[in-house]
Computed example of a mutant assay.
Amino acid sequence: MRILLVEDDPALSLGVARSLEREGWQVDVLADGEQALSEGLLNRFDLCILDWGLPRRDGLDVLRQWRTKGVRMPVLLLTARDELGDRVRGLDAGADDYLVKPFDVPELLARVRALKRRAEGRLEEVIRFGGLALDLAHRELTFNGERVPLSPRELALTEMLMHKAGRVVTKESIVVRLSTWEADFSENSVEVYVHRLRKRFSPLGVMIRTVRGFGYLMEIEAPAA
């Protein structure tokens, strides 16, 4: 799967590209609006991450030109603009999703996966386990209809565990999924996040069991005898 990343901040671009490559994407990186416009018209990509504020031609104009000329690839628009009017302008210009800077990389990756599912016609956007329901499109977890507040990384870890409920998720795969260019996520960090989720989920009848030497699995907690 091939993705076009258009971002003029070198550190951010490098970090996002590395995270996408860990997910299995082939990433083409550009830092210029004129180049992005040309590349999007000449080549086929499965998805684009497009910054609004680009040199020579801004991302919104690039997006409008693509849509006018029939380019239909899903586009995730990145911007520091967080006013409602700006979000509306971005979506009306043809963006499929919108992410405000600064953002957590796990959230960006989750949005990319959601756009990929939609493009492939996979319309199931909710994972369910016990009373838990994870809305992948809106990045929201609920229990029996009540919202369970989680951070982006806690949501990303919950998504991994719910996708493989009853099966082991390795500690190494969690490190890879939740790491960013800051390189601050370690196996010890995994244990911290698992501990947090256990505290949240145990009262809900959901447990995260440690499989020593392998990783973790999510199970329904057996009722007390």
Results as ranks from 00 to 15, higher is better:
R67M: 10
R67H: 13
T68V: 15
T68F: 12
K69E: 15
K69Q: 15
G70M: 07
G70L: 14
V71H: 08
V71R: 14
V71E: 10
V71Y: 06
R72K: 15
R72I: 07
R72L: 12
R72A: 11
R72Y: 02
M73D: 01
M73S: 03
M73T: 10
M73I: 12
M73K: 00
V75D: 01
V75Y: 00
V75E: 00
V75M: 01
L76Y: 01
L76H: 02
L76K: 02
L76S: 00
L77T: 05
L77V: 12
L77S: 02
L77G: 04
L77P: 01
L78K: 09
T79H: 09
T79E: 08
A80Y: 01
A80F: 06
R81Y: 12
E83H: 07
E83A: 07
E83W: 11
E83N: 11
L84W: 10
L84T: 13
G85S: 15
G85V: 09
D86K: 03
D86Q: 10
D86E: 14
R87A: 15
R87H: 11
R87I: 12
V88L: 14
V88M: 06
V88Y: 08
R89E: 15
R89A: 15
G90K: 10
G90I: 12
L91A: 03
L91G: 03
D92F: 01
D92E: 15
D92Q: 11
A93E: 06
A93D: 05
G94F: 09
G94M: 01
G94D: 04
A95L: 02
A95N: 01
D96C: 04
Y98M: 12
Y98I: 05
Y98L: 10
L99E: 04
L99G: 00
V100A: 02
V100I: 13
K101W: 00
P102S: 02
F103V: 06
F103G: 05
F103I: 00
F103P: 02
D104L: 13
D104A: 15
